[in-house]
Design a protein around this nucleic acid. Structure first.
Lengths: 242, 242
DNA sequence: ATTTTTCATTTGTCAGACATTTAAACGTCT
DNA sequence: AGACGTTTAAATGTCTGACAAATGAAAAAT
């Protein structure tokens, strides 16, 4: 039962290692596909499949034309967000992670940002949060739009910490549970409640009051978890329609 | 300036969307490459490049032979760790994230796990941590081995929270700064210090004492940051050799 | 009934061709 | 000499056709 991986996978790994180890630097141009097929003694198609693998991970970008080729891509935080979110979302759905667990993780991470955000948040972050609160209070909003605004609100809070690594890590946790959140029908009363809690968070952040911020997050966490539990209980009692 | 992506990228996106949306389920078999090239009206090579892109993200796995084909892969947390770590490591190095920022993020996230871990950690987690402490106290250890053990120790702490989502998110933060940590030469005295702090963490966890755990983590965070700052200062004064 | 053989299906790899894009090299005109 | 259009070479993107290798299922032999 030998487990020899494909040639294209081997070549991709070889190049990937060169990038990770710093052997290839950002902006460096890889040899052309023809040269690579010579070096690795494989056909051009195989090389291309390897390059597509790397492109899928945003490790390289390709450019056509005379001075074109494959270049080592500078991986930016913004580029990584997307993959992070898709992966997290798939992990949640494929491993049947329940709402409670996802919520717990999300608020634990968010609470970790609280002290930093209280200390460093700018007026901009606060303004974004206030704007989202206003939007959330509008009555005609769909559940999806409400959730999207919720995400934007919490991202502003997290970004307030001024640490891109934290923002990156949190993006996965916060945005990946949006699909789960979307399944919750927010009644007018629960929306009012959430908006009020958000207001409290924004106030705490404006006052740079870490304790109030943490307390507010805890309250919101519990309220959200309860909402989720209610929905889960309702879905257990089968209704008409699947 | 139209930005038409490659056909293989379009096809990959199309299939990826079908997976993310749940249109394709885990274990489902995709049409054969020949069928796909018919459906999308492209050549087999183009289809293959699309499939390799998806394979690079662990979204599908392929199998040769009569009943073979491409199957929607169940994305497991363990599978996602690897990508998460490579991506995080590249993000840190390519964006010149300094040790302080990375450290801050790491300990902020870890502190978020502390209450949960204090509550839920099993004897197993504790045993792992004690074992790693013992290893770290051995004098002949290389810096790399010391760092690896450090990672294992902290992973046990994080896993103690019993939340796979948290463990996944943290893996990136904790393991990605290992390369940065490896650049630090740990003197005998600093090692003793760290081992003592680890001992304190294990004790706090054994006693399920959240406050002590958080305090210990804060102390360790500061100590680590200081160590990093010292190294950075030394590297600023150029020595012989580059 | 069991084992062996054959066979069809599917992915993996290769080779060669043509299309398309792009920038540099070249010529031409002012 | 400089500006502007043309050619050209290099590179990726795509297509076609072929063969190799793996693999399970059906067919055949024992």
């Amino acid at each position: 039962m030998k487990n020899a991986p494909d040639l294209s996978a081997q070549i991709a790994k070889s190049i990937r290692d060169a990038i990770v180890s710093g052997d290839l630097d950002v902006g460096d141009r890889l040899p052309s596909e023809a040269e690579l097929s010579d070096q690795f003694n494989v056909s051009r198609s195989t090389v291309r499949e390897a390059l597509k693998r790397l492109a899928a991970q945003s490790l390289i970008r390709t450019q056509r034309g005379a001075t074109g080729g494959a270049f080592v891509n500078k991986l930016r935080f913004e580029d990584a967000y997307g993959q992070q979110i898709t992966t997290s979302a798939l992990l949640l759905s494929m491993n049947a992670v329940d709402f409670t667990t996802a919520c717990e993780a999300r608020f634990a991470l968010e609470r970790a940002c609280a002290p930093l955000s209280a200390q460093r948040r700018t007026a901009d972050h606060l303004a974004t949060m206030r704007a989202e609160i206003t939007r959330q209070a509008q009555p005609g909003l769909t559940d999806e739009a409400f959730c999207a605004s919720d995400v934007a609100f919490h991202r502003a809070l997290v970004d307030g910490a001024g640490n891109p690594v934290l923002s990156y890590q949190l993006a996965g946790a916060v945005e990946a549970i949006e699909p789960l959140m979307n399944m919750i029908t927010f009644t007018a009363r629960s929306r009012d409640q959430i908006v009020a809690l958000h207001q409290g968070l924004a106030d705490a952040l404006e006052a740079r009051d870490t304790d109030a911020l943490v307390t507010g997050l805890d309250t919101l966490a519990h309220y959200t978890a309860d909402l989720g539990a209610t929905v889960a209980a309702k879905q257990k009692t089968p209704q008409k329609g699947n």
